[in-house]
Design a protein around this nucleic acid. Structure first.
Lengths: 162, 162
DNA sequence: TCCATATAGTTGCAATTGCAACTATAAATA
DNA sequence: TATTTATAGTTGCAATTGCAACTATATGGA
């Protein structure tokens, strides 16, 4: 552990590297912005709400612990707490005690929640299709997916906590 | 405009489509989260601050109008106003009147701003390299870039404003 | 069993973001 | 030139997010 300073040290990026990274960030951000804009334009809640409703709906029984929910939608726990609160205030979700674990709180999607999600879907799907999916054929989509999976595969030695 | 309802209408997504989209969103989010976490851990300001400083620094003269700045970092105008304020409070940027246009406000990076950005860079670059760049060789990176560019190429008929 | 530590969730407060209304200058046009 | 319309930026207020401290239950030993 001595003279290996420039092993993984700062380097100036190649054009390729810079464009891949900034492109990835900006493309995703722009897509998300478009989805959010369209949802709002049509009077729907944000994508964050959609994500939670969808994660619940796709789960057996439509119920999840806040903790699990948070992991799936990449939210910090304090934000899960509050989002669940807001969703409950709107009647889209019901909170309850977790049966096995005295610490656990569950969120279950309601009928109203399911209906709302279903109405939001076409709006969401249309934006993503027209701005993303439509640009790739099936083979390309697979290649892209493979690249992306590689990104997600955990890093060198990074902790995966969150 | 009559019976063309299901032309671009909602469809259920294929596995491929779903995984490409959610993968893209989650991968980018996870990467950004890691960068933010590491910056914070080392006592630096957020990525948003970095982006602004970098856009200024890479510009001739280190100066930009808030409007242009906002476009480059994908921020809404009211957020640019405020971010510029905060950066100025920290002495990282100086605001001024735009010479040509009476409405315009400029932001110029200061020496302190340049120094800070330079110190942040290795932290930022390390996270991106170890979690993203290192997973692709040069050829793959080029392919990925090409895919991403295709996403960015404006959609069917979308307005590009923002 | 008792204690230390880890995990789940909540909450107060500060910072940031989003929305809508507002001011001021520029540009277009009659 | 006078008038309308578009653009640049700001600001008050509400909603959301981030941080840190806190409560309560679980879990793993001594």
């Amino acid at each position: 552990m001595k003279g290996d300073k420039n092993k993984n040290d700062t380097r100036k990026w190649t054009e390729q590297e810079a464009s891949a990274w900034t492109g990835l960030v900006q493309a995703q951000q722009t897509l998300i912005d478009k989805v959010e804009l369209e949802l709002k334009k049509q009077g729907f809640p944000s994508l964050g709400w959609y994500d939670v409703l969808w994660e619940l709906e796709r789960t057996d029984g439509g119920i999840l612990r806040l903790n699990d929910l948070g992991k799936r939608v990449l939210l910090d726990k304090y934000n899960v707490t509050r989002l669940a609160q807001r969703l409950e205030e709107e009647g889209l979700v019901v909170r309850g005690q977790c049966p096995n674990d005295g610490r656990g709180i569950t969120a279950a999607i309601t009928e109203k929640g399911r209906k709302l999600r279903k109405k939001m879907w076409p709006v969401y799907e249309k934006v993503v299709r027209e701005n993303f999916l439509c640009k790739f054929n099936s083979k390309e989509l697979k290649e892209l997916s493979n690249f992306i999976e590689r990104i997600q595969a955990s890093g060198l030695n990074e902790s995966l906590s969150k």
